[in-house]
Design a protein around this nucleic acid. Structure first.
Lengths: 214, 214
DNA sequence: ACCTGAACACCGTTCAAGT
DNA sequence: ACCTGAACACCGTTCAAGT
């Protein structure tokens, strides 16, 4: 009769609660006990819906895969499709910063993961890529995307001008910067002009897409 | 008089012990208490040489940066220098699989980190890259390298033929693979021909280097 | 200055017991 | 079938006390 009775615990509800905790409390503070509390239950009850914490993480990662915009196999503008795919991945992973670094390291790929990779391969194959080349093409793109997000993730600022300020702090903390003249150059330039992740990301993505042809 | 007396605890010895533990016991099993035990001391003594666990990780990451082969600023063959740099990074990070994903997410860059990035920027600047282009160039390369290692890290096999076997297992575990025809194609092809990380890595690296010019 | 014992506030997971 | 209480074997870190 109470609302809690009407909505019995499911894997989906456990994952949703964990996702929200990761989102607001920070990923590292995500514990079985806290997920359980968020869902109104004792920690041990979670084990009825999830094999263990590792399985819970697998589930979370697959939720994130589900948010990626999959490319359309057969899209005549395959480069456009790949570009949209990449930008969608970046947007989603910036929303779930904790997920970068987990995405490609899960051992058991979930259904959304499979769906997404299938669509990517399909789009490349139908665009005329030979099998091996399609593997190469998706591999280099994904490596770039995940690696870029890895760099972007750690940064405690959002706008170019904030970046300038952070750079200044960092510079002040390092003794004897004269040993690193080229780094000094980067930092002073950055502090002046800021750093724009959008154009930086687009630069590398375009470079890679320019080098790919069926 | 005992050997323990002759070698008092230092930050370096703490880091060395932690590195060894990460290497053999697996990174996730690395705890302050175990590092302390490995160095013959109680856990709390570590805090005299390391601010906290986060600081210990910063230290470990910088040890790894120290193993990277830095490019030579002024090297006339800058593409060769970048290629050697990339392959050295891959070799080191395959030796320290736990480090991938931590490298670019540390907030406080250590001296080896600074040294390495300074050498990279220096090599590109002296090769004729304008400042902004040097930043672009190093950014796209590093994103690719770290991202590739992220993908490579998780894999529980070393040779292409082992890979085939693993693929078969995975395939058997996924129900209704007919929903993912292109993935089925990848898996059957992979199971046949195997997957060679060396050539895969070289493909993407060459593609990126081909697109970079001062 | 460096090390320690005891304690605090946590973890993931197992297991027998409840309903 | 699902949930729970108590317990086990751990964590990182603080703090007062030792030398």
């Amino acid at each position: 009769m109470s609302p809690r009775r009407r909505a019995p615990l499911t894997r989906e509800r456990v994952l949703a609660a964990a996702l929200e905790l990761a989102h607001e409390g920070g990923f590292e503070s995500l514990s079985m006990r806290k997920v359980a509390a968020a869902v109104g239950v004792e920690a041990m009850s979670l084990y009825n819906h999830v094999a263990n914490k590792e399985d819970l993480l697998d589930g979370l990662v697959d939720v994130v895969f589900g948010e990626f915009e999959a490319p359309e196999p057969g899209d005549p503008d395959w480069k456009g499709a790949m570009r949209r795919r990449a930008h969608s991945m970046r947007a989603v992973l910036n929303r779930h910063r904790w997920a970068v670094g987990l995405m490609e390291s899960r051992v058991a790929p979930g259904p959304e993961n499979l769906r997404f990779h299938d669509a990517t391969m399909g789009c490349l194959r139908l665009a005329g890529f030979a099998f091996r080349d399609a593997v190469h093409a998706s591999s280099v793109q994904d490596a770039y995307i995940y690696g870029f997000l890895l760099q972007e993730r750690s940064l405690p600022f959002d706008t170019p001008s904030e970046h300038g300020a952070v750079i200044e702090v960092k510079r002040a903390n390092v003794p004897d910067m004269t040993r690193f003249p080229h780094l000094v150059e980067v930092m002073t330039e950055m502090a002046k002009a800021g750093y724009d992740y959008d154009t930086e990301f687009a630069f590398g993505l375009d470079l890679i897409l320019a080098g790919l042809e069926p």
